[in-house]
């Protein structure tokens, strides 16, 4: 196989045009760095919203005349749903008691009310891991249809706005990532194209000696790949430095940064993404190789 020789040609070519190649690596690194930042923002936003408590509890207000036995039936139905962690019945009296507990010394506001105005209710806790915003909405709609339930209350408005912010951020992030990826591919494409034209004479001679397409392409594809990996590694260093600064330095002053999560997969992903983009750019740059 000629692959060892192709590798040698690729390394030679990179060394011979080291400044152009260095510039490419830095440009690729900048692109990948921005891709990573975008990804981190969307990823962390996603993580943060997953932990919002509003998502995990619902209050089901019951009809005033619903017997307690019926409420128990509803609870056992609810518990069959895999998203439900627990469900607790709160009677009218219990509700009033809890309200008094909340009001403490201000319970005089309740004076003069002789009939308990609070409805009986069921408090539902949902399982954190298995619940998305759209699932919660669907569950709420389903529950509302159950006979005996007057109203379902959960942070609908709040969840809706979080949902649309998240969706917007994701779309924007995806768009950013696509644009940046195209940019990185383009940088590899141009670099390989330049290298290819510099060696046009030589390649013509290779062809006349009987070189296959694979032999002609391999050094350039390898070169594109090396540039990509190089860019990936440099951007990784940048990302790690940024993370270190945020997490260990800035977080001392602003603890909010403590919640940022840095998935370790990035260490493998960045060079791999660079490699893929680099090879793609090189393959596009080489196009179809003709012999006659």
């Amino acid at each position: 196989m000629y692959i060892m020789y192709s590798l040698k040609l690729a390394v030679q070519s990179i060394w011979r045009e080291k400044w152009i190649n260095l510039l490419s690596v830095l440009t690729i690194a900048a692109g990948l760095f921005m891709i990573t930042l975008t990804f981190f923002s969307v990823y962390n936003m996603d993580l943060a919203t997953k932990k919002l408590p509003e998502k995990f509890s619902m209050m089901l207000y019951l009809n005033n005349d619903l017997p307690e036995q019926e409420a128990a039936n509803i609870i056992s139905t609810l518990k069959k749903n895999s998203a439900v962690e627990r469900a607790r019945y709160i009677s009218k009296d219990k509700a009033l008691e809890e309200l008094k507990g909340v009001l403490k010394n201000a319970d005089y506001v309740l004076e003069g009310i002789n009939e308990n105005p609070l409805p009986a209710s069921i408090e539902v806790k949902l399982r954190q891991e298995s619940v998305s915003i759209s699932k919660v909405k669907k569950l709420a709609a389903d529950i509302k249809k159950i006979k005996g339930i007057e109203e379902v209350e959960y942070g609908e408005q709040f969840l809706n706005s979080i949902h649309s912010i998240k969706a917007g951020a994701q779309t924007l992030g995806l768009l950013m990532i696509s644009i940046m990826s195209t940019g990185v591919i383009f940088v590899c494409y141009s670099t390989v194209k330049i290298m290819f034209y510099r060696r046009k004479e030589e390649i013509e001679t290779f062809k006349l000696l009987g070189a296959t397409r694979g032999f002609i392409r391999a050094p350039f594809v390898i070169e594109g790949g090396i540039l990509g990996i190089g860019g990936g590694v440099v951007s990784l260093i940048g990302t790690a430095a940024l993370y270190y600064t945020l997490f260990y330095k800035l977080a001392l002053a602003m603890p909010i940064f403590k919640i940022i999560v840095f998935p370790s997969e990035v260490f493998i992903a960045l060079p791999l993404v660079g490699l893929t983009l680099g090879i793609s750019g090189a393959i596009i740059a080489l196009g179809r190789i003709r012999f006659s």
Partner: peptide
């Protein structure tokens, strides 16, 4: 077209313009 390289390997050519690689 993809067979051309393999035919060329059976044909040695002394080119009029040499086609030596200067580097």
């Amino acid at each position: 077209e993809s067979s051309i390289p393999f035919l060329r390997r059976n044909i040695g050519v002394v080119f009029q313009d040499f086609r030596l690689l200067d580097n």
